Amino acid sequence: MSDSAGYVTTHILDTANGCPAANVRIVAYRIEGDRREELVDISTNHDGRTDQPVIGKGSLRAGVYEIDFHIGDYFKARGLESATPFLDVVPVRFGIDDAGEHYHVPLLASPFGYSTYRGS
């Protein structure tokens, strides 16, 4: 097992409109017990990706992480959601076994549903 050479990326696709989800706020955390340590607060670019890894080399170690996708604001800005969105912040909690690997955590979202998986 390597330490600190790996990183985490993401990509958000708007499945309601068939396009990348631009300008979505993403906050990533390291989870230790009941404590969440914020690592980054960034937004997606025009391609639904971040311009840098969500969790970069040197910050990744084995353990539990969470990415909060603020998708409700995105759909409200597009006029696809009411004042109280069905999905607001989508938290994805995942584990890292090998801090030397690349982990990709994509989100496919519509105003009323989402899915995720470990991508490549």
Rank of each mutant, 00 (worst) to 15 (best):
P106F: 03
G48Y: 07
I96F: 04
R36W: 07
G48L: 13
H104N: 13
V90M: 08
T116Y: 06
F112H: 14
V105E: 06
V64A: 05
Y117Q: 08
F112N: 12
D51F: 06
V27A: 11
H11P: 00
N45L: 02
I71C: 02
E38F: 00
I12A: 05
N23G: 04
E81Y: 00
V89C: 06
I96T: 02
L107V: 06
V64R: 05
I26E: 09
S43Q: 11
I42G: 00
S110W: 03
S59M: 14
H70N: 02
Y7D: 05
F86E: 13
N17H: 03
F94P: 01
E81F: 01
S110E: 03
A83I: 08
V24P: 02
N45V: 08
A62I: 09
S4Y: 13
T50P: 08
T50F: 07
D41G: 05
G119L: 11
V8C: 03
V40D: 05
A62T: 15
A77K: 12
L13K: 10
M1Q: 07
S4I: 06
L80Q: 12
L108F: 15
I26F: 10
D3I: 12
A83D: 12
N23E: 11
I96M: 06
L87G: 01
L108A: 15
P85S: 09
H70T: 00
G58M: 12
D14S: 04
P111E: 01
Q52E: 14
T116M: 04
D34T: 14
R118T: 10
D41H: 08
S115Y: 10
G56S: 13
S120G: 07
E37D: 14
H102D: 10
H102F: 13
G72R: 02
T9W: 05
D68V: 08
K76F: 01
H102K: 14
P53V: 03
G72C: 06
I42L: 13
N45E: 11
Y117E: 03
G95C: 12
